[in-house]
Design a protein around this nucleic acid. Structure first.
Lengths: 192, 192
DNA sequence: AACAGTTGTAAGTACACACTTGCATCATTG
DNA sequence: CAATGATGCAAGTGTGTACTTACAACTGTT
């Protein structure tokens, strides 16, 4: 099944670069070093191939978890957010295309968003645990904090290559900024 | 110049719906009720037409300013953020396409991002003014707060139609959440 | 009344697209 | 050895694409 896999790989890459319409069967065949007909014999149609390859590609995840028991809030959140940022960045172009083509191909976006939902749940759990242990103040919505942190990180990762909306910073710099702001808002004890 | 303007309008709409490749000269002509040749006589090429129409469309701004002198931080920020959210939402599909096609058409993204940069400057100014007047605590990066608020609002506006990353909320709900979190992080006096 | 500018119509070019067909080639497997 | 299945190759279908050309009709201006 080597032909099949190389077709799936190549197709995902081309889709990221050129979107649905720009990913033609000719380009796929050429890039995969395979005859164009093979595509149709293996997958039946361009649509089937694209769907399968995009789903496969967006399921590839780094494993990246927050500790079950929060210890050093700030550094744990920063490490986690950095990894999350890296994961989004690596799929940046594919995600952008899926979002742009959402109306024409609604089946793509959910698959790409899955990762974000898991990260949301993970973070809320972690923060709730921290509050239960008295590491956070009693006030402030944990959900709001999570959504905001995730949105901020996601947004930075998505638009980093395009051009700065805000003044330029390195990835670690902005991630630290975000984490610190969230911890401050939640009244973290160690936020010195 | 009515032919020209209706072509510009229609083209921007079609671009939002179908992206660059999907916006064909035939579709444009048909939707504008104009002969296809007229496009080439008026604009010379598809590229020229698309460029001009997208630039024109993304410059259409609601006017939406934060007060020069901050008075009621929370409500002023909420009103502003809501309007900002509405403006991004109305251009959502176009922005998504410009981002997705950034590598193939780098000239588009900057134009679309302009609004965001102005909003960033506006907010930083406003918050700095507020801090100078003692309405905010002395600690916490104003820039971090601004970036985070903008990213969060932008992100929500961009992905609202696709499907919720986080639990569903109405627009006013999330905007209030974000503003409250930021004000809390900045130690706003009135944030009760 | 003559003219210039804008539009419509009809036809065509050269190429790209998704997808198909028929046949030859090869490796694996029974 | 024979049969099977995956692949390559060459050629084709019908449609869509950006863009062009030549000519006729209409507009407003001088």
């Amino acid at each position: 099944m080597s032909t099949r896999n190389s077709l799936l790989d190549v197709t995902a890459r081309l889709y990221s670069e050129h979107g649905w319409r720009g990913t033609t069967t000719r380009r796929i065949a050429e890039a995969a070093g395979v005859n164009e007909v093979t595509i149709f014999r293996q997958f039946g149609s361009k649509e089937a191939l694209l769907l399968e390859s995009i789903q496969a590609a967006s399921r590839e995840e780094h494993d990246n978890q927050l500790p079950r028991e929060p210890a050093r809030l700030r550094s744990e959140l920063i490490v986690w957010a950095l990894l999350h940022h890296a994961e989004i960045s690596s799929k940046r172009q594919m995600i952008r295309n899926c979002l742009a083509e959402w109306e024409e191909h609604p089946e793509l976006a959910p698959v790409v968003c899955e990762g974000g939902m898991k990260a949301f749940a993970e973070t809320t759990r972690y923060l709730a645990e921290a509050r239960k242990r008295g590491m956070l103040g009693p006030d402030g919505s944990l959900e709001a904090a999570t959504v905001m942190l995730m949105n901020a990180v996601f947004m930075d990762a998505m638009t980093r290559d395009v051009g700065p909306l805000s003044p330029p910073h390195t990835v670690p710099e902005v991630v630290e900024m975000f984490v610190d702001l969230v911890l401050r808002a939640l009244g973290a004890r160690e936020a010195a």
